[in-house]
Amino acid sequence: MSITYLEAIREAQYEALREDPSVFLYGQDIATFGGAFKATKNLSKEFPNRVFDAPISEDAMVGMAIGAAVEGARPIIEMQFADFSSIGFNQIVNQAATLYWRTNVPCPITIRLPSGGTAGSGPFHSQSMEALYAHYPGLVIVTPATVEDAYWMLLDSVKLNDPVIFCEHKFLYYHLKADQIGDRELPIGKARIARPGRHATIVTYSAMVHEALRAAEELQLDGYQIEVVDLRSVKPMDTDTILASVARTGRLLALGEAFPWGGVTAEIIARVTTDGFHLLDAAPMRLNSKDTPIPYHPNLWKSHRPTTSTIAAALRRLLRN
């Protein structure tokens, strides 16, 4: 018996609906159909009148969730793909993110973004939006990389009294499996040492955690022990855990699948160089996707995003410095 990352997301929503009658689900094709990825499979049957199909109106979906939250509900909004949340961008960053600060009324909504690239998905079904949302005050941005985190962080997100952007990675949906969902280990806001090491630190999140772990395996053959920090949430970012890791290794590679300009990896480097410059034995490095839209063909797509081999190559350069 095993459970996939995608099933964990479904189970977390089942549990959220079961635990709290104020939780409801709203999104395109999520009721009888069970969602484009089946993340809400059977939930409308198990919870009648709690799971609703939405029109293709991401702006109105988010606005509706905000109004419902003011009334005490805890809606979970499913964007069919993270990319389409750009249509709801205004409601997310200007209405939801500012509501508490402006009016003292919290806005407990969870917006699920099926994020990141998979082969063949192309420019508009592959994006990683976490940096955009993290830029705005008033949002919590979580990026689970494990089956356990997909489950527990989604449940925790629904319980938070603030708007949460839940970036779930589509590449992990079916490939990532666990024997069972273990206990909740860390709260939102704490990073995890995914692999201990002493020669260099990779700080990353979401699907790139697994690429980083594979690159670390590869480097081990050369005698290097690479530490991998899984941020789990990019905002808040657990700067203490990052700095503690860099203090142990003296070398930093900030890794992300998102576009290179600004973003999470730039934030990691900025924090380490401003708060921990003295800990560094070499200039820190960044690795992101290329600065183009995300390509369709697998040959191009594999070269667009960081992979185990490009990460390993970056690590080797970092270790030579």
Partner: peptide
């Protein structure tokens, strides 16, 4: 941002109907 309050008011009503 004009028009963005319409869905918010609607959402409040929707939540009340659910509750």
């Amino acid at each position: 941002h004009l028009g963005s309050l319409l869905s918010v008011v609607a959402g409040g009503l929707f939540a009340r109907r659910l509750a």
